[in-house]
Design a protein around this nucleic acid. Structure first.
Lengths: 199, 199
DNA sequence: ACCTGAACACCGTTCAAGT
DNA sequence: ACCTGAACACCGTTCAAGT
C-alpha cells in the first residue's frame, strides 16, 4: 500500500489521459469512467484525484487534446497555393474527415457539459478561436476589400454551419430525411454561402 | 405493497414524462435519473419499467415531446403572407427563440445518444423531417424554377447551419471568439446563403 | 509525499414476493 | 395485474491509514 513512485505526477496525468482517450474513441463519452481509466493504468480510482480536480476536469483535458489534433489536421491542410474558395472547401473537407474518422472523440467535445455555472477554461476557448482564424484568413483573401468584421462574422457563420451538418449527420438525424451525404450538404452550404459572400 | 391502481398505464406514463421533462428543463439531461422521476411521482423505480423499456426509452419519449413543441412553434409562425426569404428568416427566428427559451430541453434532443447499434425510432426521424419540410416549402416558393432536389438539399444545408450556430452559441463555444450574438451569426448565414441560392 | 482500500451517496436494472 | 423492496453491479468523490 502507498508510495510506489513508479510515475511522476506528469507521467500519471499523461497515461491517464491516453487511457481515457482510448476509451472515448472506442466506446464514446458514456464508455469512460474514473474507475475504468484507473484500472487500465494499474492504479486505484483515488489516485486520479491527485492529478485531476474531478472527472469533468479529466474529460475536459481529453477534449483539449482532441481539439489540438483537429487543429493540427486543419493547419496541415496546405492551402496557401489554392484559390481562397478552394482553400475553404479543403479546410471543410479536413474538418469533416476528422469528424468521420474519429466520431466519438469529435462528438465528445460537444457532448460534454460542465455543471451549471462552471465555465470552460480559457485555453479551451482559445483552441476553438484558432480554428475560426484559419477559415477567416481565407475569407479575407477571398474579399480583401471587405472590413475585417465581415470576415470574422462570416467565418463563424460558415464554420458553425459546417459543424451543424456534421453533428446532425453523425447523429443520423440528417440521413432520415432523404439520404444526402454530409459532403453533399456541406458542399451546398459552402457553394451558396461563398457565392453570396463574394457577390 | 403492490397493486394500488391509482393510475392507468397511460396515466403513469404521462406523469412520468411530465416529471422527467421538468427535471430536464431545470437541471439538464444530467439532472434526470429514473429514481428522481419515480420519487417525484410517488412511485418506486421499478414501476417505471412497467411503462418504459429502459431509461433511454424514457428520455427518447421526453425528446419527442420537445420535438413536437418545437414543430408546433414553427408551424404557428405565420408565414403564408410573407415573401419567402422573410418567411425563412421568421422560421429561423422561431427556432432560435425556442432554443434560447428552453436551452436544456432543446439541447437534450441532441445530447442524448443511444448505445452503439441501437437506432432512433422512426417516429423521431419523421418529426425531424417535418421541420425540414417547413423550410423547404419556402425555398421552393423562393425559386420555383429549381428542381425539388435542390430545395431539399438547401433546406438541410440551411437548417443544419442554423442548428450549428445554436449549438455552438448555447455551448458558449461561439461567444469566446469575438462576441457576436447568435442572431447576428444566423443572420449572416441566411443572408449569404439565400443570396447565393436565389442567384 | 504517494497510493490504497474502504466508505458514502448515488446510479440503471431485475425480480421474488406481496396484495 | 400491479407495485414494492431489496439486491446487483455499477458510478464519482473523499479520506484515514499505511509506507
Amino acid at each position: 500500500m502507498g508510495r510506489r513512485n513508479e510515475h511522476t505526477r506528469e507521467e500519471l496525468r499523461q497515461i491517464a489521459l491516453e487511457a481515457a482517450e482510448e476509451l472515448v474513441a472506442t466506446h464514446g463519452l458514456v464508455g469512460v469512467s474514473a474507475r475504468k481509466v484507473a484500472s487500465r493504468i494499474g492504479y486505484t480510482v483515488g489516485s486520479l484525484y491527485m492529478v485531476f480536480r474531478n472527472f469533468d476536469d479529466l474529460i475536459l483535458q481529453v477534449n483539449e487534446r482532441t481539439l489540438d489534433a483537429l487543429h493540427a489536421r486543419l493547419a496541415d491542410t496546405v492551402v496557401e497555393q489554392l484559390p481562397p474558395a478552394t482553400a475553404i472547401r479543403a479546410l471543410a473537407n479536413s474538418y469533416i474527415a476528422f469528424a468521420l474518422a474519429e466520431p466519438n472523440r469529435w462528438l465528445a467535445i460537444y457532448q460534454h457539459r460542465l455543471p451549471r455555472g462552471e465555465a470552460v477554461p480559457t485555453s479551451f476557448g482559445e483552441k476553438v478561436a484558432r480554428m475560426f482564424d484559419l477559415v477567416q484568413q481565407q475569407l479575407m483573401r477571398l474579399c480583401p476589400q471587405r472590413p475585417t468584421h465581415d470576415s470574422t462574422l462570416a467565418a463563424r457563420a460558415l464554420w458553425s454551419g459546417i459543424h451543424g451538418v456534421c453533428i446532425l449527420g453523425l447523429d443520423q438525424k440528417l440521413e432520415v430525411v432523404g439520404g444526402h451525404s454530409i459532403e453533399a450538404v456541406t458542399g451546398s452550404l459552402l457553394d451558396q454561402y461563398l457565392a453570396g459572400f463574394s457577390q
